[in-house]
Amino acid sequence: MAALLASAPLLALVVRAFADEWRAPALVPQQLGLRGVQIAFSGSSAEAFGNSLLVAVATAMVALVLAWPAARVLGERRLRHPAPVFLLLAMPLLVPSYAVGTGLTEWFIRLGLDGTLPALVAGHLTFVLPYVVLVLLSGFGPRLTALEEVARVNGLSPFRRLLWVTLPAAAPTVGASALIGFLVSWSDYGTSLALGGGRPMLPVVLLPFVGADPQVAATLALLFLAPAVGVLAAATRAGRMPL
């Protein structure tokens, strides 16, 4: 019952996506069809899906690699004065992403990187990296250190320790932070708009359709939702939420 109530708004989106004709005040579409799908999968929309996916995956990966050592230091509370570090991490989360994008565009134009995928990844990294560090650090601490000590005492080399002990033990947090990194990048509008320089990104392409053509908007919205559904499915299976 509750599940039905929670999914009702989204079910309407599915109907809307496949309704070629659905004039008010009818509660049921007059004609079903694939017009929305055709438009959504042609031209810049399809390209936008690919761009968004590529940028989100790349951003999450880069963020994870950069965040790992920092999360380790912060999670094990090794710093005597961690406040400045956390302040620096918090800053990008407090500033409009459009402001970050606009400021960075200035430099990317000079560097000739304007509108490239690396520029978009760099822009998203500004606020994805803090999220990933903040989630990842909860995976480190005395519990993990204790396991690593066991591995050490048992003579595992640093590489095997990482592979057999640290990574498996930290896997849930690593997974959660990667997913959050992906979703934050995937959902971002402001930076993509400012840095895209004409390169289509899914949210940027979707927005104009919301007012102009609800059918196409609904179809693109379902595409936009796909990764989130995947995340929820994975989280439900793992029996916990990523946040």
Binding site: L66, A67, G103
Partner: peptide
């Protein structure tokens, strides 16, 4: 690595703006 990346990107964005 992460702090330098953040300082560069965030600082760059603010200075750029």
């Amino acid at each position: 690595p992460s702090l330098a990346a953040l300082a560069l990107l965030f600082g760059g964005a603010i200075i750029g703006a």
